[in-house]
C-alpha cells in the first residue's frame, strides 16, 4: 500500500521535473523581447516618430499607453482611426482627439542656403537626411515621415515643411459627399 503511494509520488515527481525542464528550455528559447502588448500597440502607430504625443517616439508612447500613463488619444498623425484601434486593443472607451492632424508633410532643405552643419541629420529619427559635414544636405522624400524634428535644430532656418507633391500612383477617388455629389444615370459622378 505504502509502496504504491511512493511509486505514484516518485512518478509524479519525475514528470514534474521533466516538464519543468521543458518549460525552462522553452521560456529561454522562445523568449520575446519586450512586452507583446507594447508591440501590438506600437504596430498600430504610424511611426512618424514626431513626439507630438509628448513622448520621444512611437514605442515610448506605446509603452506609456500599456502602463496606463498616457491616454489613447495622444497620437496626432494617427488620428481618429488609430485612436479607435488602440482603444479597441486596450479595451478602453474611445475618446475625442485633442489636436487636428495637418495631413502628410514632407521636409525640404533649401540646398543653396544649407551650411552643412549636420544638425538636422542628428535630429532625424528615421535617418532620412543625407549629407556630409560642410556639404549641403538633402531629404530622401520617400523616407521622410514629416515629423518636423529637423526644422528646429537648423541654425539657418533652411528647412521647410511642405505638402508632398501629388502623385498618380497615390491618387484615389474621393468619398461621396451628399449634396455636393451629383450623379448621372450610368454611374458618372462629378464632385
Amino acid at each position: 500500500m505504502i509502496v504504491d503511494v511512493l511509486i505514484a509520488a516518485v512518478v509524479v515527481a519525475c514528470m514534474a521535473l521533466v516538464i519543468a525542464g521543458v518549460l525552462a528550455y522553452a521560456s529561454k528559447k522562445f523568449h520575446v523581447e519586450g512586452d507583446p502588448l507594447v508591440e501590438s500597440v506600437n504596430d498600430l502607430l504610424p511611426q512618424t516618430q514626431c513626439g507630438q504625443c509628448s513622448f520621444p517616439g512611437c514605442r515610448p508612447y506605446a509603452t506609456a499607453v500599456v502602463k496606463g500613463e498616457a491616454e489613447v488619444n495622444q497620437c496626432v498623425p494617427g488620428g481618429d482611426r488609430t485612436m479607435k484601434k488602440i482603444a479597441d486593443l486596450m479595451g478602453v472607451e474611445a475618446s475625442q482627439m485633442d489636436a487636428e492632424d495637418l495631413g502628410p508633410r514632407l521636409a525640404v532643405i533649401r540646398e543653396d542656403e544649407c551650411i552643412g552643419c549636420t544638425l538636422c541629420i542628428k535630429a532625424c529619427p528615421v535617418d532620412a537626411i543625407v549629407g556630409a559635414a560642410k556639404q549641403f544636405h538633402t531629404v530622401i522624400a520617400d523616407q521622410c515621415t514629416g515629423c518636423d524634428l529637423c526644422v528646429e535644430p537648423c541654425p539657418v532656418d533652411c528647412i521647410d515643411m511642405v505638402e508632398p507633391p501629388k502623385q498618380l500612383a497615390q491618387w484615389s477617388w474621393r468619398a461621396v459627399r451628399p449634396n455636393k455629389t451629383r450623379q448621372k444615370r450610368g454611374g458618372k459622378v462629378e464632385t
Binding site: 506600437n42 502607430l45 532625424c124 529619427p125
Partner: peptide, 13 residues
C-alpha cells in the same frame, strides 16, 4: 507599409 519601414528605420537609428 510605410509605417513598417519607418519603424525599422527608427529602430536602426
Amino acid at each position: 507599409k510605410f509605417s513598417e519601414e519607418s519603424r525599422q528605420r527608427s529602430e536602426a537609428h
